[in-house]
Design a binder for these strands. Structure first.
Lengths: 339, 339
DNA sequence: TTGTACGCGTTATCAC
DNA sequence: GTGATAACGCGTACAA
């Protein structure tokens, strides 16, 4: 039990309402500066902490944001979550973090329980392209999507510029002399997988390169799935000299496939990843990859949501795209000269 | 604005207090089963969600737990956090997660703001061995320490059995034939670093091996620091055939040091890590390491804290130790036979 | 078994 | 510039 407004009021000899006004920055100007000072001193002396439940009950705002991600163990997310935590925290908001494990039922359940907690808004990082929940939810709450965009509903979002990222990868390979480039694509249900796959096709076309039979999608974002997928691609077309993978796990699987076929990366086949997860600089070979600014995505999303919380009226839907960069390491090199 | 008890009461035609009793599992037995049924139906129809702020204001319990970790980006923590989230969530509690970045000032600040949020308890994963905060905090709140124990105060904790983990590593190396084993220890201020270092000395003694001049502590848990540290150790004593590192990062730094001295791991020097971070199976060489059950540490800590919340009276301080296991990979082998 | 009455700590709206 | 008062939604001792 810590001190309350009433305690301070008693100590200073004024009414609790005045104490409330004095302590609230938005209303402090209505109060005599001298009494404000006295109140503040008394508050510090009693080490008063405002009770957010009482305030929330009155104002029906919890200063709390629901953050829904698939899985914290996926190295993609801790960076984003930190970005969110840091900017929300600075603004006096607390993120409530939950994991869906990519299960729509669990997701519905968790979103419901966050609603019960009276969150003031949501940041959603779930990856499915279509989701019935989105439309309903966005009518009741301010929402920001991260690391994905929505197909159906038009919603505020913060994501990497996938088109640009994939282009960086292909320009790099093209510059090294590669022409026979394949794509290990992400699952079809995934928003990022879909976008990167489309970006691949477009960028290849822009370079005058063919993609037919050179794109194959995995069923899940796993090393094993990518291993199979890449093996299939290489067997189907032995002329391939480079692979663009839709993320780092898929790149690692592709490298495993290359090794499994007794060929070498990058000597025989170059590989480019996507995301730059931790430790991608010390795998074998160190992975050339497109780095996504994960922290920035998180903090930008938080900023966007906070701005939506103040200007309720604004109808414009902001869709922020952050620019990725290519990190050059050892998994890419010139294609081997034919003997 | 969702429905309230009053709305349900009006719909059913009874008093709000009765609705409250009917909906609260702990008091439902006081109510006519027939009216309970009617109330539940009405609640579902209006999709009533209890307002936790109002309940919390009344009961002064927020059903919220402060979870304080150094940095979510450190791969050690996501697993523990998931364990915490999952078990707390099942019990109707919500974790409030904050990062200290190992800065005591930031930590004090965050703990204060979590207190302001009226958390019902704390799970602390901060690593410093001594911390003035602990004693005070533990008087006001139920606390569980994870991944560390406290030197000064006797507090409930959940951590890995470091003694056992280090012993596994040394027995493994000993069994391979190693006798000249060095230890790249963690920072002195770190609880785990300290414990593992002590465990190393003890286990070596138990095997009749000498440790003098074979232990050196890094100043931070970084690959670079370990690189320097291991280089120093090897230069000082070229007879060393194996290194036990206090965690995986230090193991990676040690391997880098070995490579940097134009020697090979494991051919010239074997290395054992600790933690089994993600991707340690695909670094070069794949790392033999002691796996800590991170999820279990988290869920066990949550369970412990929850039990403390119900039985306020209990004075016994539980200190749980979870058993790690050795993961055999390719960074260890027989010592090279002298020519 | 159900209704009454009150208070948790805060803030918004009056009136002075 | 400040005080009085009511209300946010819920839980609970007490009365009926």
């Amino acid at each position: 039990m810590s001190a309350t407004l009433k305690d301070i009021a008693k100590k200073v000899g004024i009414h609790p309402a005045t104490v409330s006004r004095a302590l609230n920055p938005r209303t402090a100007h209505l109060v005599n500066p001298a009494t404000v000072a006295k109140v503040k001193k008394a508050a510090a002396a009693l080490d008063y902490l405002p009770n957010p439940m009482a305030a929330g009950l009155r104002t029906s705002r919890s200063h709390t944001i629901g953050v829904v991600i698939p899985d914290l163990n996926n190295p993609l997310f801790p960076g984003m979550v930190r970005g969110i935590q840091d900017t929300l925290g600075r603004a006096g908001y607390t993120p409530l973090l939950v994991n869906t494990d990519n299960d729509p039922d669990i997701e519905s359940h968790l979103v419901a329980s966050l609603s019960a907690r009276r969150v003031d808004g949501f940041i959603l990082a779930t990856a499915r392209r279509d989701h019935p929940l989105l439309a309903q939810l966005s009518e009741k709450f301010p929402i920001v999507l991260i690391n994905r965009v929505s197909d159906s509903v038009q919603l505020p979002s913060v994501a990497a510029d996938e088109q640009h990222g994939i282009r960086l990868a292909i320009e790099h390979l093209y510059g090294l002399g590669h022409r026979e480039i394949a794509h290990v694509a992400g699952p079809a249900w995934s928003s990022t997988g879909h976008e990167r796959s489309q970006a691949f096709t477009r960028s290849m076309k822009d370079h005058g390169l063919v993609t037919s039979k050179r794109i194959s999608a995995v069923s899940s974002w796993s090393i094993e799935a990518a291993n199979e997928c890449a093996t299939r691609l290489i067997k189907a077309d032995p002329a391939i000299t480079a692979i663009v993978a839709a993320n780092d796990q898929l790149a690692l699987g592709s490298i495993a496939a290359i090794k499994g076929m007794k060929r070498r990366c990058p000597r025989d086949i170059s590989v480019v990843g996507y995301n730059d997860m931790p430790f991608m600089d010390i795998v074998d070979p160190p992975l050339t990859t497109v780095r996504v600014p994960q922290n920035d995505i998180g903090s930008e999303a938080a900023r966007l949501l906070l701005s939506m919380l103040v200007e309720e009226g604004s109808t414009s839907v902001k869709q922020v795209r952050l620019t990725p960069e290519l990190i050059l390491r050892s998994s890419t090199t010139h294609p081997r000269v034919e003997k």
